[in-house]
Amino acid sequence: MHKFVEKPFWTETVPGGSGDAIKVDFKGLQTSGLKGPEIIRLLGTGALGIAHGTFTTVAADDEVFNGIDLPGLAHTIETARAISEAYRPVVSKSLEEKHGLKLLAVLPFTSQVFFCSTPINGLEDFEGKKIRVYGRSLAEMAEAAGATAVTIPFNEVVPALQTGVVDCAVTGITAGNTAKWYEVAKHLYNLPTGWAINFYAANADSWNAMDPAAQDYLTKAITQMEDDIWTFTAEENQFGVACNTGQDPCKFGEKADMKLIDLTSEDKEKLNALLLDSVIPSWAERCGADCTRTWNETVGKVVGMELSVN
């Protein structure tokens, strides 16, 4: 997404389409030296004009953000988009009122799935396993399934899988392939824990000070980019499955020989039960009664769930 859509959009499309009226100093997260969790605060101070972030990464600043990508709810990218569209006004309001930001786009990464170095046939095999996760709710999901949640930086996962520090690790289905996790993880459990839903936002003061013509152009251009990324990611996700299992077409990545374990209807029932029993109520308690009511009226209606409001 970064290479084929975002970078050309900001470095070519925007300057060219605006007749060079909009100039962009574009930096990726790694080259900028940032980590991710600080994005909301840097936008709020105006240190960044427009920035990209992942909701689960910045959720320490606002528990509301987690509601758009709670683990295990969206088994398909179509459901992920329906959830995102339903909850978008909620995160938009929070960004504006609490943080002084304007939401510009809501986007997906590929499905976040399990790369396992030990054989696994389904959700019940998580019992006793050590699983590399990111985010509090995902850790709670792993633990509800009987596993031990472990936090390890992305670039340390391969040796951790190799030495048994962890048995499985969660990441994007194409990100794991690009990082060659398949060299030590031979089992791909295709349970989408989420889609690492991410966003573009602008500092509200900077945005409001922008020339109206530039605002109009950027709004339309970013809306088109957003739609392009949803379409691109749906295709990329299919390539991710194909590449990791040595099938065609494998467009982004390397062909591997992982064993694919699909999510069964029985696993879906077990997953929904543990989500409703502990994972989602735990998030709702942290987020509060008003937040829970709003979630019920938006995401809850999309996925057919209703949480108790305490």
Rank of each mutant, 00 (worst) to 15 (best):
K3M: 12
F4Y: 08
E6S: 13
E6R: 10
G17N: 08
A21Q: 13
A21K: 15
V24P: 02
V24N: 03
V24C: 05
F26H: 11
K35M: 10
A51S: 14
G53S: 14
T57W: 11
T57R: 14
A59P: 00
A60F: 07
D61A: 12
F65G: 02
G67L: 01
D69G: 05
P71V: 03
S84Q: 03
V91T: 09
E96Q: 12
G100I: 03
G100P: 02
A105G: 03
F109G: 11
F115G: 00
S117I: 00
G122T: 06
E124C: 00
D125A: 09
I131C: 06
Y134D: 06
E140V: 07
V150H: 04
F154I: 02
F154N: 11
A169R: 02
V170Y: 04
I173E: 08
T178C: 00
A179Y: 12
W181G: 00
E183R: 14
P192F: 08
I197H: 05
N198A: 15
N203M: 09
W207V: 01
A209L: 07
D211W: 01
M225W: 09
I229F: 02
W230H: 03
T233S: 03
A234F: 00
A234G: 15
E236F: 02
F252Q: 10
G253V: 02
E254H: 09
K259A: 10
L263D: 07
T264D: 06
K268R: 14
E269F: 00
K270G: 11
L274C: 01
L276I: 02
D277F: 01
I280T: 08
I280C: 03
A284L: 08
A284T: 03
T294C: 05
E297V: 00
E297Q: 14
S308P: 01
